[in-house]
């Protein structure tokens, strides 16, 4: 464990609390992509199922339980509790275009061709692109509530902080995880446009609006 990874994980936790808080205070899931949230459930289930056979640490174990359960809870909030506030006509990205290619890539580019390893690799690739439906939705509406942008910023910062973590681990332990690194860089790259608007508008006290 190092400070980059710890801060990254804390940003990830924060993003989930911000999202749940947003839905509770506004009593709605407006502006939130159900598809992105469903993809996160799939990501966490396929990656963290190893908690049944691989022991790393209490930290690792409890975080896995938290991410699986919180993502399912969020899906419940969007799909049942706040369903009337969900507008499917805005959430139209085709997730098949993400799940299919990620699965094929996981079959081709992996460390070992076995069940648990393919699941892990698939989850890494899928996590990298799972934000697409959410970004697509914001592109369509051209705006986002401020609290939603805080959620996305924390979520983006989480993977961005893993990059210095990988550099640090390379120098201190000699470990390199090319699959996670390449996917993590792609994942962070997808947020660059968002980060630009977040820093230049939201952090200056303005509303998050995309140019028409």
């Amino acid at each position: 464990m190092n400070v980059f990874r710890l801060l990254g994980d804390l940003a990830h936790l924060a993003s989930i609390f911000i999202l749940v808080h947003k839905m509770h205070i506004t009593r709605s899931c407006r502006g939130i992509s159900f598809k992105t949230q469903a993809l996160y459930v799939l990501v966490f289930l396929t990656r963290y199922l190893d908690l049944f056979w691989a022991w790393i640490s209490w930290y690792n174990f409890l975080m896995k339980i938290f991410f699986i359960s919180s993502s399912c809870y969020i899906l419940y909030l969007v799909h049942y509790r706040f369903r009337p506030t969900y507008d499917p006509s805005l959430d139209t990205f085709k997730v098949e275009y993400l799940v299919g290619p990620c699965f094929v890539l996981a079959l081709i580019f992996n460390y070992h061709f076995d069940f648990s390893e393919i699941l892990w690799t698939f989850s890494i690739y899928l996590e990298a692109v799972a934000i697409f439906p959410q970004l697509f939705m914001m592109q369509r509406t051209g705006e986002a509530e401020t609290i939603t942008t805080h959620y996305l910023a924390a979520l983006g910062v989480y993977r961005a902080l893993y990059i210095p973590n990988w550099i640090y681990r390379y120098y201190t332990e000699g470990t390199v995880d090319p699959i996670a690194i390449v996917a993590g860089i792609v994942q962070t790259g997808l947020y660059l446009d968002f980060f630009y608007v977040y820093v230049t508008k939201v952090l200056q006290g303005q509303k998050f609006e995309l140019p028409a």
């Binding site: 691989a54 790393i56 460390y111 070992h112 892990w120 893993y162 470990t175 390199v176 090319p178």
Partner: peptide, 10 residues
């Protein structure tokens, strides 16, 4: 250690 030996990151 090879990266594939243990996925210790979240």
């Amino acid at each position: 250690a090879k990266p594939s030996e243990a996925h210790d990151e979240l």
